[in-house]
Design a binder for these strands. Sequence first.
RNA 1: GCCGACGUAGCUCAAUCGGCAGAGCAACCGCCUUGUAAGUGGUAGGUUAUGGGUUCGAUUCCCAUCGUCGGCUCCA
Length: 595
Amino acid sequence: MAERKEERYEESDLYRIRHSAAHVMAQAVLELFPEGKYTIGPPIEDGFYYDFELPRSLTPDDLEVIEKRMHEIIVGNHLFEKRVLSADEARRIFKDQPYKLELIQGLEQGSFDEYGQPLAEKPEISVYAHDKFIDLCRGPHVENTSQINPAAVKLLSVAGAYWRGDENRQMLQRIYGTAWHSAQELEEYLWRLEEAKKRDHRKLGRELDLFSISEDVGPGLILWHPKGAMVRVLVEEFSLKAHLDNGYEWVFSPHIGRAHLWETSGHLDFYQESMYSPMDIEGEAYYAKPMNCPFHIQIYKSRTRSYRDLPKRYAEYGTVYRYERSGVLHGLTRVRGFTQDDAHIFCRPDQVEEEISRALEFSLYVLRSVGLRDFKAYLSTRPEKYVGDPADWEIATEALRRAIEAHNLPYVVDEGGGAFYGPKIDLKVHDALAREWQLSTIQFDFNMSERFELEFIGEDGLPHQPYMVHRALLGSMERFFGVLIEHFAGAFPVWLSPVQVVIIPIADRHYAYAREVAGKLKGEGLRVEVDERNERMNAKIRDAQMQKIPYMLVVGDKEVEQGTVALRLRSGENPGAMPLEEFLERAQGDIAARE
RNA sequence: GCCGACGUAGCUCAAUCGGCAGAGCAACCGCCUUGUAAGUGGUAGGUUAUGGGUUCGAUUCCCAUCGUCGGCUCCA
């Protein structure tokens, strides 16, 4: 059901309601600003928007006024009427609306739809009218404004947006709104938004003392606090071992490299706007690395490779620095310095299919092991600007597609979305606020092998060019951690919890026993703290709950006497007193199962 | 980078029209010795992001810079 949602959405009542609400909103806005220009206003997931060019910036007060007027229009019982017309007729209607004229031209030429996307067939030109408002539109709409429930419509925010998404064009004002069948559905949606905010990784990161970003250090640069770092170390340990078990060889490489290296790799030609200014070392320019590939390539090139040596799989937690424009930075998920769980695979052409399949398999294994289940694959194909032979692109793209299908992954094809150097598979997951983040990526590279003149000696004794595949599974440790925090709402599975057990002595006289228990558990490899603060047990439990510590062990007179511990779980569940060995067994079971 | 909003104690937030900058939590010092989500008294904590301007007087008004948030564009 879920994977078919998008196909059906455009056929749904909700889609019509939202699309129609967008028209009603445009009417209300243009009544308020008769000289305003209107552009497009589609339904989106959970709502709709409309983009306008207006004489002044909108305020929250304006939204209230617009919303109120929308309600009036809706209860006016106006019909939505469609009319198909010629381009010239349409131009007459929208003669004062430059954006509409541009849209009409696109439709007339049959090349672009209203969002500027290329169209396969030449579309008809139609308008929808209701009340005193007419809009260029292909529908669909409700039949009558009365089918919109005014109590289930709400305007949410106003934001800037470029005309046709092009930053070189006019900045418009976009109003976001939402519409549902019933007021109750609207309430539920707004509640969902509130709940999602509670698990925002930026909020939890501070509350759980996981990480911070210091203004003095700089935006987009992450400070991992002890608890966050512990989670990272555990994930890294797990993944490192998994790599070694799966035929990867671990390497390390420096953070900077000479300009010449980046000239050879092509980064200074194609990627310089994402790189930081070079530093001068003895008159020579060095750049902080935005990617790890040139370094792994140098390791490959450090000696002559035989066809027998391949595939070579070099893996590293490689820290890279990329210039990201200030407006795009976002907590842990979009930063300027980050560490990729990066690897480069060098292989013979006859091995590439197998390598892709293995890489995808391995990626799914690692993601699932850390608790992520819900992701979507994107297959990105050849863009307009590309290097290499189109026939190779075809072979590589099909190899990627077969790998996705062999693993029964739902996927969408992103036509032309590949990098200039090769096609790729991306795996994306959603954060708490339904924003989609890319984690895994498996990318072909037709460029580097050529540029660095990589070769291996074949069976025939002659040099051949190897294929090269880049891949990152968790993507970056920073982004992955951000997604992980939201995925678990900070309540990490026991094996990843920075503190697994907190021991809560009821009174001072229980400290010695508490320490003894802690010592035993630490001896078994558990991460344990004793809460010796001069606080009541209730307060200690409350704090442990809020820190989302999996196990609380309360020890008082009874436990000391009987040599037991009273277990409480962060779920609120209270299994009660049990021998320490019983608890230990239970905890170790949960850890081994990765819960 | 662009459009808009915002920036007060470690955190969450007050401060009427431009008139002595405050509270809760956290921290620290005590008292209480505690049984499953906040015991209690006290102490300390501020160049109101930074720099300039207007004013007798600026947290408040204006300008610039830095940063944060929501989007756009771009991406791991």
